[in-house]
Structure formats: C-alpha cells, structure tokens
Nucleic acid binder design. Sequence first.
DNA 1: TCGTCCCGCCAAGGT
DNA 2: ACCTTGGCGGGACGA
Length: 352
Amino acid sequence: MSSSPSQFLDSGSKHHSYCRKQKSLGVLCSNFVSLYDRDGVELVGLDYAARQLGVERRRIYDIVNVMESVGVLARKAKNKYSWIGFSGIPKALKELKEEALRAISGSDGPCEKEVLEDEDDDSEGQNHDDGDEKFSKMDNASSSSGNHISKARSATDNRKEKSLGLLTRNFVKLFLTSDVDTISLDEAARLLLGDISDLSNMRSYNAAKVRRLYDIANVLSSMSLIEKIQVEARKPAFRWLGTEGKPKTDTVSKKPGKAQMRSDDLKECNLTAQKQLITKSGYVFGPFCPAGMTKVDGDVEGKGERSAQDWESLACSLRPQYHNQALNELFTHYMEAWKSWYSELAQGSYNL
DNA sequence: TCGTCCCGCCAAGGT
DNA sequence: ACCTTGGCGGGACGA
C-alpha cells in the first residue's frame, strides 16, 4: 500500500539505500504541511495524502491526530479532515488552556479528568500527581489513581485515554499552564504517565508513552510549536515556542515573544528567508514542492494550483532553516530533488 | 551503549 | 463482513 512512489520521498531515493531520517514523522509532517497549507485547500483526504507523501496511511493518522489536537485540522468524516491551517492554532491553544485551568481550579470537584469529549465522562479520576506544583495538574486520563474506583472503565475509555490526540493535548497543556517553557522528557513522561499503581508494569508503560512523546514532539516541532533542546547530556527537553514561534500573518517581524527569541540554534534561523515564505495562514514553512501541487487530483485537495514558476522561484530563493538539524539536511536533499523534478517539468509535461 | 522512533501487527470501532 | 482508526512495542538506526 505504501508502494506508490512518493514524490516527496522517493524522488531521490532510487539511487541509494534506505535512510531513516527521510521517514521521520517530523519530515512527513513538513511534507504534509507543504501539501496542504496553501490557498484554496479545504479538505484533506487521508488516502490522497498517504499517496502523495508515499507513506502508509497509518503514518498519516499519527500526524493528523496531533494536528487535530492543536487545531490545524478538524475531522469531518471518515477519511476526511478539513484543513483549518495554522490560523486555527491560537484558538485551539486558548481552549486547551481554559480547559486545563478549569481542571486546575477544580471548579467541580476534584481535578477534572481529561475530557473524553464525546464521552460521558463517567468517572471522577482525581489526579494525584505528586508534587510538581509548577505544572498544572494534568488530567491524567488514565491515572485513575484510585485504582479502586474506576477500575473497570470501559475498553473504549481506556483506549481513548491513551490516544495520541489526548496525549498531545495533555502535553501541550503542560506548557500552557505552567510557568516554565521548557520541560524535560523525563518530566513530561512522568507528568503524563498514567497508572503508577502497578510498578511492575510501569517501566514498559512509561517506555511506551515516551515513544509516543517522541512522535508528538516530532510533529509539534515540525510545526514550530515546540523545539527539542538538550538540557544536559542524555536529558532532552522540549521548549515551548507556541504561536510566537512562528510569525503570524501580520506580525512577521514584530517583537518576538519569549519563545521566539530563543538563543543559539534559533539564532541560526534564517528569518529573512522565512519572511518570504509566509503562507496564507501566516505560517512559515519549507518550500518542499509537493508533488501534485500543479495537478489537482479530483480529490478535494488543493485547489490551489500555483504556477510552477512561483514554486521554482521560491525554491530557488529560499532556504529556510529548521530548528531540527535533520530537517535542515533533508531540505538540502529536497532541493536537489526539486531541481531535478522541475527540470523534468520544464522539459516536458509532467503528469502526475 | 542507549536514546530515538520507524514500522506494521492486530484489535477496537465504524459502516 | 469489511473497512478505518490507532494503540502498541519490537527492533533498527544513529549519535
């Protein structure tokens, strides 16, 4: 199923072996964004996306889930999402924050447990996250500290509690409600960790969650909502950039917020180039040329056909820097791919 | 060595 | 019954 040639990933892979980096969720997310973040795009078809990006559908779910959690996408129907774009992030974050604050204030009882929206929220999982006052109480979906109380939660709840989307929201809430903008992986894992009651399983459970955290972090950082930093050896952490991590439509070069002016690595960031690549939503991203951009598959997606020239000039003149070095390197690769693709296009008809 | 995280199995949920 | 969704963790990759 993933055999369809990916214009994104395979363009240059014919000659060499497998490269793990090319397959990363972060890169995939970037490509996904490139594919959809343009004028006229309203619907996102999972199949189409998977085909275009040359990945199996399963990967699309991962991306879509975290993107939906931060308001970039909204599920419309089976296989269909509507593209809201980065402009939807502020609102989503606001809601998340309110939700989290409400939980903290515990307006109604103990700590409100995670909203299993569409669910009748049957139990009153109070959470017991021991002592991290600097972080708000996270609604530990699965916490159910009172291993006695809701022991027998429905399988559905159970499943939802562990969803990538929920984990993403909780992860984001950590930042939104705490007074720090950096959280170590350890901390995040611990705070988002569910059931601590069973120590025997804790290790593997935690490990599994950490894996998800990596997934989430990759997607979020590829959207510049967070960035991964290294506090100390072997102690990765995530820094919150939020909506300030990227310029908004009309505030491209406005005064940076706390997060925007991150030091070192970000300093590297080529803001000049970024300014030139503002999408309709004001988001800045790498000009990976999404195959299919010139051709609008009958499938809803991208009515935004834009002249190849536009893209070419973008590709030639811009060279955005990613916080993620891997992305940076990869970008170089894509530039090559782009060039060859474009020359092919220039020569003859390039039919997708 | 060990942090990172791809990959795909397979179960739950939906139609 | 078949399809979609997505949890999950083995194990490969890379620093």
